[in-house]
Design a protein around this nucleic acid. Sequence first.
RNA 1: GGACCGGUAGUUCAACUGGCUAGAGCACCGCCCUGUCACGGCGGAAGUUGCGGGUUCGAGCCCCGUCCGGUCCGCCA
Length: 589
Amino acid sequence: MSYRTHNCTELTKKHVGKEVTLSGWVHKRRDLGGLVFVDLRDRYGMTQVVFNPDMVKDFKIAEKLKYEFVIKVVGKVEARQKENINKDLATGEIELMASEIEVLSEAKAMPFEIFETNKGDEDEDLRLKYRYLELRREKLKNNILFRARVEKYIREYMDSRDYVHIATPILTVSSPEGARDFLVPSRVHPGKFYALPQAPQQYKQLLMVAGFDKYYQIAACMRDEDARADRSPGEFYQLDVETSFKTPEEFFQEMEPLFIELTEKVAGKKVMSKPFPRIPFKSAMEEYGSDRPDLRYDLKMIDVSEWASGTEFNVFKEAEHVRVLVVPNGDKFTRKEIDNEFTDKAKRAGAKGLAWMKHTEGKFEGGVSKFFDAGKLEALTKLVDVKENAILFFSADKWEGSCKALGPVRELAAEKLELIDENLIAWAWVVDFPMYEWDEEREKVDFGHNPFSMPQGGMDDLLNKDPLDILAHQYDIIANGLELSSGAVRNKDPKIMYKAFEIAGYTKEQVDEEFGHMIDAFEYGAPPHCGFAPGIERLVMLLLGEPNIRRVVPFPKNQKAEEPMMGSPAEASDDQLKELSLKIVQDKK
RNA sequence: GGACCGGUAGUUCAACUGGCUAGAGCACCGCCCUGUCACGGCGGAAGUUGCGGGUUCGAGCCCCGUCCGGUCCGCCA
């Protein structure tokens, strides 16, 4: 009577002779006239069902089956003849000889095929509209199942280390820092709005004040910002973690095994270096041209400012910083690749151009080599380890520009030279981010990242150092060129907080108005605390090697933040608007 | 808000420098087939070439505008 006694992946030779019931979708059918084969599919796998007119009660039903019908089949497990074994199928040694068949649900013709004959390249809007069908596809289904395994592993890891799972409010208040908020109108309070949380940042810090010294949550975060390939518009999830009474180093050591185990045990990939390197922000920028470098390959930049200032090449002579990236075997890059692709990368990163020269058979040639005499070129070989055949890319700019220009050049070179091992994950902590940075536009000092981070030297540094030299207890965890999360030791000292904000140009009154409740809380006994919040989708993308975030989200939004299946966002009815005391002013197009 | 790439049967693609009655695979419909597993065979239906305008004897192809999608920049822990 039951719908199934087994699923579609578990029947093996051991079950031969047994009568079983399977239910699932008709994945493929092969109608040979007097004999019908059906690949029956469910979440777990696939089993071949054979309908033989001599064995099955109602063969006519079997003949009328279409793709994606949901059926129930009763039958006997039979071993396949040797020549009929399918090695590509997990259940390929057996088949189900049907005795009864029942159609549980018919299906219309699919808007696209579930069986991926077309590599899953159909128009994405179409696939999003029928996401429930796309989710039947092997690859996407496995991605979602993989994500569930990752999240389960995370929960078990955190639980086993005594972290407390606490849900924080979804309806909360707008925060002045960071991204645009999603607002939710209040019915009870006309004209007032809740905001959806961009992150549970303030709540988790308040939980520390409350004494829940180890907190975690796989938290929904909502931000009204535009999409990227690795960024969902609207919403995403973070593994939100905060802990009291731990130094950052202790925190790193507690969290590192989670990422190692996820890489090795769940994803079956290799970790590049254990423990994870701790790379100061400054070196990351100067050596790799990025604050989230891909460490799977070497390729480091070298500072040649001093050498450059002594040359007759004006661009180099006048620049504050000149850096060089030596790419072994890069001499084979064509003029077209250099002028178009590499130069384009550098320009997009803010450079005016990209200087280069090749080193072939012991000689510098091409590009800017003509600007330097033999002596200068000889001097250069003493500074940089020039491989026999190589290309040298130069950047010349102020500190930040000289670093950033070569970062994407480095990535492109690695890609072209196939230096990237897809089976490797190079985790690292980037530490010592600057507390402040210079805001060129507004010509003032502003917070580099999170204003709630503790300055490393505390009040002493704030009082005595050039703000731009002050480092924060702020760190990122990165992998393969992705930033998984930033984190920090939080500033829980009201005096230091007022001073930190003062340096960035905020008055005490402004701070009180916007963060008064936080400061208030810190005045009732706040433990030192730190934490981070890695993005779940990015983590899963990284572990799977998927380039697009929509491949790891079950029901994603498109680039315009719409969900074509449900049709969100949608207009509200006049009654709803009235109840919420809202009026739509802008013309509907 | 901006830049770039794309839009041809349900779907994936094709159609040379403008010559077309817009083709093919899969899906769909009908018939045949008892060992298939991307089953095979025969036949059929399926299109305002995103939309609007222009150039031309003639436009899927060229031009202008517009809409839609993706990637990137801006924005964003």
